[in-house]
Every structure is written in C-alpha cells, then in structure tokens.
Design a binder for these strands. Structure first.
Length: 391
DNA sequence: GTAGGGTTAG
C-alpha cells in the first residue's frame, strides 16, 4: 500500500484495506472460505432444493404471492406492508433466494427506511439465508445513511472475509458515506485506494465527490475537479452540476449559476428540469421575476417540461411581487397542462391571499384544493394559513 | 437477477 497519509480518524479505512491486502495475498484461503461458506450455509440446500416438495397449498400460495409482489413492484412500500411481505417470504417453502430478499431490501431502502432494512437483514440471517455481495452492499449503504460509518466499514470487512472483492459500487457507497459525514479528504483517499486496486472510478464516484465538496461549501475545489474531469475526457453530466448550481444560488450568487448554465450548454450537457428549477427559484427569490419567466420559456422551448416545483416557485414569485392574479392564473395554466398542484403550491397562494386579507380568494382556493382531494388538510403549514385567516 | 451518487418549491 503506497499511501500512508491517513488522518487519525481514517484508521478504519486503513484497517479494512489491510484486511483486503491480506486476503489478496491468500487467494487459496479465499477459495477455501467460499467453499466452506457453501458447505456450511444452512440455506445452501434449501435455496435450490425445496424442503417441502409438494407442501401445503397455503405455502404454495404464499410463495407465488411474494414473487408476484416483488415482480409487480414495491415502489414506495410502507413499513407494515414490507414486514408482512418479509414474513410471507420466510414462511415460504422453498425459501426465497437471497436475490429475492435483495430486491425487497432495495425497495425498502429506496423509501429511506434504513433501520427497517437492517433489521430485516438481521432476521434473514437468523433464518439461515446467507448474505451475498448485493445484500451486504445494501447494508453498507444503510449504515452510511444512518451516519454509522464504523458499522459500514465492518460490513465491508465481512465482505472480504466471505471472499467478495469490492467493486466500484461497494466503493462508491462508502465514498458517499464519507462525504455525507463531511470527510471528503478521506473519500478522495478511498478513490486513490480504488485506483491502486485497479477498480476504475466512474462518473457516479466523481459526482459523489463533487457533491461532497459542495456540501462542505468547497465550491472552487468542486469546480476545479470538474475541470479536471473535462481535461481527462470524463464528460460530466447534469447531476455533476446540480449541487454546484444549488450552492451558488443558496449563497446568493444566482448570476454565477446562470453563467455556469451557459457553460453547461457550451459543453453540450443537457440540463434537467431540476437544473432549471434551482435557478428559477433563486431568480424568483431575488425578485427577478422576468428573468425567471424567460428561463421558464427557455426550458419549455428546449422540450424540458416544467413540473410542480417549477410552477410553485413561479407562483411564489408572483405572490411576493404582489401579482396574486398572475399567480392564480399560473395555477390554472399548470392544471390545464396536466401538472398537478400539491399542498405547497396551494399554500403559496392561499398564504399570500390571507396575508393580503383577500379571504374570499383564499377560501375559493381552499375549496378548490379540497375538491382535488388528498389529505392536504393534514398539512401543518396549511393549517397555519387558516389559523392566520381566522385570527 | 439485485447493490452505489444527486440538485429543486411553503
């Protein structure tokens, strides 16, 4: 290991890397580990051989229903639902494969219920189903999101012990974890280690580092990293620029963000709707409503469809400028164009009407909002608008 | 087959 410039609190990385080096030198040992894992895994036999061939019809039903459920999609799965699905999986015979569990865990992780994923991972192991490279990586991500870097690195150690080699995704998960902790320098060190280990960093890794630098408000370093990417033939994408633009706008430098948007276009990087939203919102807050509307037209001309956030920012801009009628008109426009307003959109208008004492208008909008359904009434800020109105 | 990043509105 040629590098030794770790800071004291980077010792975990070093320890884990040392374990890896040790493993690499003993490939035979690794094979033995793999073999013994297959032999000793309690789930080894049941994964391919049903224990209850021709089991009860209940169990067959349950088996086909979890498969159906995983296939039909578990986007936005709620906790109770996830637990029920997991229970039906562990009661099925033959037991589901670790791949089925990784699908479930991945779906839950996307809803940010990291604790739940970790707890179900634990229960899966107790059922005798061994982790694989994928489920371990999901665990690393969960620990990183919970700001438990120590546990994340120990899961990586476990991966090594089981004979898995880290790949780009394993590293990027940990690099993001370090960035989320504000430990960008160590994240960069880890990129160096990847390279030493012949694992090639990709655009996602670089974007992660750029975002980490932006989180630390290290904008000039982020910009020079992007320049180096360009110089080395690594084309950044809109995601690379998002955090940079956001940081510029949030620190009151909308003009620089507009400049950068121009540079993106020169570099043939297609902005996303989010890219425009960041700048449009910032212009609205600056009071540069006309510029915001120009940008709004520009994005539509380019075929980038405005979404609820774009409209909400603009409506807020109109309201701050005292142009409530224009704001209300934009609300009608967005509905006509098939963009559904949400509680934030209505709140911007209603709050503004209430503040102006235009209670009739506020009530009309309120009625429209409840006609449109959903449980918007439960929203706290909306309640505040109405308390203001009543007082 | 499944795992990784990210920026936006009150």
């Amino acid at each position: 290991m040629k590098r030794c410039g770790f800071s004291a609190n980077a010792s975990t990385i070093k320890i884990v890397m040392d374990i890896f080096e040790e493993k690499k030198q003993t490939m035979l040992c690794r094979r033995l580990v793999l073999v013994s894992r297959i032999l000793s895994s309690p789930s080894g036999g049941t994964l391919t051989t049903p224990l209850l061939s021709g089991g009860s019809s209940d169990r067959k039903m349950s088996s086909s229903s979890y498969k159906e459920r995983l296939r039909s999609g578990i986007i936005g799965i709620k906790k109770d639902d996830a637990v029920t699905l997991f229970q039906s999986m562990i009661q099925s015979r033959p037991l589901p494969t670790v791949v089925d569990f990784s699908r479930l865990f991945s779906g839950i992780a996307r809803t940010k219920q990291y604790d739940l994923v970790l707890s179900l991972c634990n229960q899966m192991e107790l059922q005798g189903i061994a982790h694989n490279n994928y489920t371990l990586c999901i665990m690393i991500n969960c620990f990183c999101r919970r700001h438990n870097l120590g546990f994340a690195f120990s899961v990586m150690g476990k991966m090594f012990k089981l004979g898995y080699e880290p790949n780009t995704i394993t590293f990027s998960t940990l690099i993001n974890g370090l960035c989320l902790e504000g430990r960008v320098s160590e994240a960069v060190e880890l990129v160096d280690h990847m390279v030493d280990m012949k694992v090639i960093p990709n655009l996602i890794i670089l974007n992660t580092i750029v975002n980490g630098l932006c989180l630390q408000d290290r904008l000039s370093e982020a910009m020079s990293l992007i320049d180096r990417m360009l110089a080395n033939g690594c084309q950044p994408d809109a995601v690379t620029y998002g955090p940079v633009l956001n940081r510029m706008c949030k620190s009151g430098n909308t003009a620089s963000a507009l400049d950068l948007l121009g540079k993106m276009e020169l570099r043939k990087i297609k902005p996303q709707v989010v890219t425009y939203n960041i700048i449009i919102d910032s212009l609205c807050k600056d009071g540069s409503l006309e510029d915001a509307l120009c940008l709004f037209n520009e994005m539509e001309t380019k075929g980038i469809k405005a979404n609820v956030i774009t409209y909400t920012s603009l409506i807020g801009g109109f309201c701050s400028a005292g142009r409530w009628d224009d704001g209300a008109q934009l609300l009608r426009d967005m509905i006509t164009r098939g963009v559904t307003p949400n509680v934030v959109t209505f709140n911007a208008l209603i709050d503004s009407f209430v503040k102006e004492g235009q209670l009739t208008e506020a009530k009309k909008l309120y009625n429209e909002m409840i006609t449109r359904g959903t449980n918007m009434l439960l929203d706290g800020r909306m309640k505040k608008s109405f308390l203001d109105m009543l007082s």
